[in-house]
Amino acid sequence: MRRSAACAVLVALATPALVQAQGNTDETLKKAVQLYEELQVERALVLLRQVISPSSPFVVSSAQRVEAYKYLGAAHAILGQSDSASVYFRAAIERDPFVDLDAQAFTTVERAAFAQARQRTFAVAVRPIVRTRIDPRTERMTFVLLSTHACLLHAELRDAKGVVTPIFESENEGVREIQWDGLLADGHVAPAGRYELVIRGQSHLTDNVDSARLFLDVALDRPPLEDTLPSLGAADLLPEHYPASASSIELAKGLGIAVTALAIPLAVGDNHLGTGARGLAGVMAAGGIAVGVGGFVWRRQHNEIAANIAENTRRKAERDAKNGDIERRNEQRIAITALIIAPAAGVGP
């Protein structure tokens, strides 16, 4: 309880200080830019150096630092200090390859120095994306890539399983928009999941290699798919063969006829009679034994239960037909699938 209260007090004290620190950097930077535009370059340099100084008491964001380096380079270019200008421009470019000098705000000398710095610095970058919904049949996702100077640029998408889908490879210089149709290398719509857009460039001037990556989440926007029916298990199917005892039962039935025929004169007949009956019973018994043996052999050779086989075949066909219908409905739903592509946190797929 006491610890929580202490944390709350610290947060309450620290938050305004952080905002004030960023606010001070922002004010300093604005003031430096204003001085620069008023051609008070020396005074602007002092403020800009304060911003990038490691001993600065204020928090400096990456964008503020890039902005400071850019104006430091421009200021040194105006002062004719081309080497220093190049150093600061390169520092800005290395931190943000998309940084550029507005032709209406900077002079030709400054832009020439910046261009020179770009030639000496090789970097590739991809612009962050915003959440976008595309229909793969008609729409494309646009990625904005950049190389600071001429290079061979290669872009590819990697999914969580490491499967790579190349989406661009060409010579490039400066900013380029590439488009992705939402399909993977196998021609199917990209399944939902996290993907990594990797761009690699090899400079034609310095032979240096640089790469950048962008993580994105792909979600599918479509009606939910139906599950197909599971395979028919043993419990769902009728036995297709008689048990091993079936042939013995056939034999027993035939022997039952024989035994009954022999037993009838003894059990039903008169003790003093039955001579003729026993002879006829013997004939019937022989027939019963023959039928029993025949049934035993026949059952061993005809072990299939035809009715059950037909019923199982019908059940399998019915299941296959239902699965076929489900697959057709799913294909229709997949055909109208839209992709929702959103930026993801910077962790691998």
């Binding site: 056939e250 039935k253 035939g254 039952g256 006829i257 009954t260 039928v291 049934g295 026949w298 035809a306």
Partner: peptide
Amino acid sequence: PLFDNAAQAIF
């Protein structure tokens, strides 16, 4: 029934 009901034992 015998022989898949092609024959029948009678009692």
